[in-house]
């Protein structure tokens, strides 16, 4: 996977988190009116952010085709 894809994934996570926080600060009434939607978007943002940071910050090698550690 290229560096550009990693940067894009993390940038998307940061933008998603920042956008949600900005909407919450700027239009609290809108967020309160649709609290289910915004709670869901926030929880998805948290999961995506951790996944994107982990995926982008960790190294890649040729281990993709490894056998399981155990059982075979």
């Amino acid at each position: 996977m290229g560096k550009a894809l990693k940067v894009t994934a993390v940038a998307l996570a940061v933008a998603w988190d920042a956008a949600l926080t900005w909407v919450d600060e700027t239009y609290p009434a809108v967020v309160d009116a649709h609290y289910g939607l915004f709670s869901t978007l926030t929880i998805l943002a948290i999961a995506y952010t951790i996944f994107a940071i982990g995926w982008a910050a960790s190294p890649r090698s040729e281990r993709r085709n490894r056998a399981p550690f155990l059982g075979y």
Binding site: I46, A47, Y48, I50, F51, I53, G54, W55, A57, S58, P59, R60, S61, R63, R64, N65, R66, A67, P68, F69, Y72
Partner: peptide, 24 residues
């Protein structure tokens, strides 16, 4: 968080990658 994550060759890849995300 900063170590390589990868799927074994025998895995059902989509499920394997998505389970940790869905757990969170």
């Amino acid at each position: 968080l900063f170590k390589e994550g990868y799927a074994p060759i025998t895995s059902a890849e989509f499920l394997y990658w998505m389970v940790p995300v869905f757990n969170v």
